[in-house]
Nucleic acid binder design. Structure first.
Length: 326
DNA sequence: ATGCATGAGTT
DNA sequence: ACTCATGCATA
């Protein structure tokens, strides 16, 4: 067997892809700390996923509300917890300096419409199973990816680089930059890349969104995600450059929604600040605590829960990024 | 470019 | 209920 890249190899005279995103289960075992105290939050399968405008209008934060750190906003949440959270909501806090971008928007939200349509996000990207969080701390090799054989499909016109075992952050960074540069030179948008990806017919690789391409270029994906996507985008680049060389061009787009648009909840700056405060003292609040916070901020519990999930993901990325510097 | 969300696979 | 990869919508 000849290893072409960390995910591509020649086996039985066929070029084989180890699904880059099919990660093996972590050998380190469980590290998640399931809070066994969760109060089986019944969670009425609330079909409305977005904050109704009404509740926002009645929210004291929306209009001419002025944040007062000494005010007692959370009478039902234990005081020490509250105090710590409040202390950390101040602008000069260590926390705020770590999440500067989240303190910019002061615009309250009132643009929601009751959404009835369910989102049909068909995952067309790469199929995978989630790797362990610890994976992200590994930078010399990637022991979590299975080298499973894909059903005999041979993909030969895709140029491959013999030595690509690198998952060195430096190399990733360099590639991401080069990628963006070349992509722009080719006059291709991020959205285009994502769409054209499916034309590569790489096993297990469909299309990707503009968001993902953007995040790849700006290194705002998890390390694992970057590593997994690199060979795919590298293949696309080869493909695109070859296509450009042969002067072969074809343009076509067209993709837009109808009525069933998904609405994005927007959490006002004040609420966000408080959430950040809570997060700093307790990144993983129990379901009960989440419910309390949700009630206090007049947000839906699920919105708060998701916010914490996303905040954790973001924090992890930042942590990893900072590790690369020091 | 990024905030909020979904869904699959885990714990 | 969680993590992780990803996407839609929007700033």
């Amino acid at each position: 067997m000849v290893q072409l890249t960390s995910q591509m190899m020649i086996m039985d005279n066929k070029i084989t892809f180890s699904n880059p995103l099919t990660a093996a289960q972590s050998p380190f075992g469980g590290r998640y700390s399931p809070t066994n105290l969760y109060r089986a939050a019944a969670a009425a399968a609330d079909s409305r996923r977005y904050m109704p405008t009404a509740s926002w209008k009645s929210n004291c934060f929306v209009d001419n509300f002025k944040f007062d750190p000494n005010a007692n906003f959370f009478p039902t949440i234990d005081d020490s917890f509250l105090a710590r959270a409040e202390a950390l909501t101040k602008p000069e806090s260590f926390y705020s300096s770590h999440f500067p971008s989240t303190f910019s928007n002061q615009t309250p939200v009132t643009r929601f419409e009751s959404s009835n349509g369910i989102n049909h996000s068909n995952h067309i990207g790469l199929s995978m199973t989630s790797p362990s969080s610890q994976d992200q701390l590994s930078s010399h090799h990637n022991p979590f990816y299975n080298h499973s054989t894909m059903n005999g499909m041979s993909v030969h016109q895709i140029a491959m680089h013999p030595h690509d075992l690198d998952i060195d952050p430096r190399e990733l960074e360099g590639f991401a930059e080069r990628f963006k540069q070349k992509r722009i030179k080719l006059g291709v948008t991020q959205a285009d890349v994502g769409q054209q990806l499916s034309k590569l017919k790489m096993p297990g690789v469909g299309s990707l969104s503009q968001s993902t391409i953007c995040r790849f270029e700006s290194l705002t994906l998890s390390h694992n995600n970057m590593v997994a996507l690199k060979p795919v985008l590298q293949a696309w680049l080869e493909f695109a450059e070859a296509e450009a060389r042969s002067k072969k061009k074809e343009e076509l787009n067209g993709h837009n929604n109808n009525d069933k648009k998904r609405k994005r909840t927007s959490i006002a700056a004040q609420e966000k600040r408080l959430l950040e405060g809570f997060f700093s003292v307790q990144p993983r609040p129990s379901g009960e605590k989440i419910a309390q916070i949700a009630e206090k901020l007049d947000l839906k519990k699920n919105v708060v829960r998701v916010w914490f999930c996303n905040q954790r993901q973001k924090q992890k990325r930042m942590k990893f990024a900072s590790m690369q510097l020091g």
